[in-house]
């Protein structure tokens, strides 16, 4: 039984990182699972699941030439991996406002308190350096319903953050 690993790769963004790393993994006998890449503050970041017969050290040695050539940081964890286990989100939450410390913590704490389970979160700081705007999108499951979320978010709204809840009605056909 092949073991699943979670690889986290961070570095300065440059063309061809994904192609180079995934080709190396494929040639080294890895089977790739799910992956998520994002460019955060100009930095390249990717997390990817890889199934591999060897050890963490062997995997690290496999990628060593690319890590050195592209000046990447690589982190590897052995994980209990499962494919075909997607949870379908039922609520999407958009948050935006003038950027200030603590928005993410406030919003996510309010959501957690109302039984919300975050499945996907991404946020950006937009606007200008003088007037930064914070924009966040979250998808997840409202275990206790949307009304509980609306109530929990009232306090956050009173502090000047726009929060919008949109139900995600997935059509299966």
């Amino acid at each position: 039984m092949q073991q699943w690993f979670m690889l986290t790769v961070v570095g300065k963004d440059q063309p061809g990182i994904v192609a180079r790393v995934t080709t190396r993994l494929f040639d080294g006998g890895c089977n790739l699972g799910e992956a998520s890449m994002a460019r955060l503050g100009g930095n390249f970041t990717i997390m990817l699941m890889a199934q591999y017969d060897g050890s963490i050290d062997a995997l690290r040695r496999l990628l060593a030439p690319d890590v050195a050539a592209l000046n990447l940081h690589l982190h590897i964890d052995g994980i209990d991996g499962h494919l075909h286990a997607h949870v379908v989100p039922d609520t999407r939450i958009s948050v935006f406002g003038a950027d200030r410390a603590g928005i993410v913590a406030q919003v996510t704490t309010a959501l957690a308190g109302a039984g919300f389970n975050v499945l996907d979160l991404e946020s950006d700081v937009a606007g200008t350096e003088r007037q930064p705007i914070y924009v966040m999108h979250i998808e997840g499951c409202a275990a206790r319903g949307v009304d509980a979320l609306e109530q929990a978010l009232e306090k956050v709204r009173r502090e000047g953050v726009e929060v919008r809840l949109v139900p995600i009605d997935t059509m299966i056909g």
């Binding site: 075909h84 286990a85 997607h86 379908v88 995600i168 009605d169 997935t170 059509m171 299966i172 056909g173």
Partner: peptide, 13 residues
């Protein structure tokens, strides 16, 4: 824009 899934495409929306 809306979310879809399909009986013929399991485990993906």
């Amino acid at each position: 824009v809306g979310r879809e899934g399909c009986l013929s495409v399991p485990d993906y929306t």
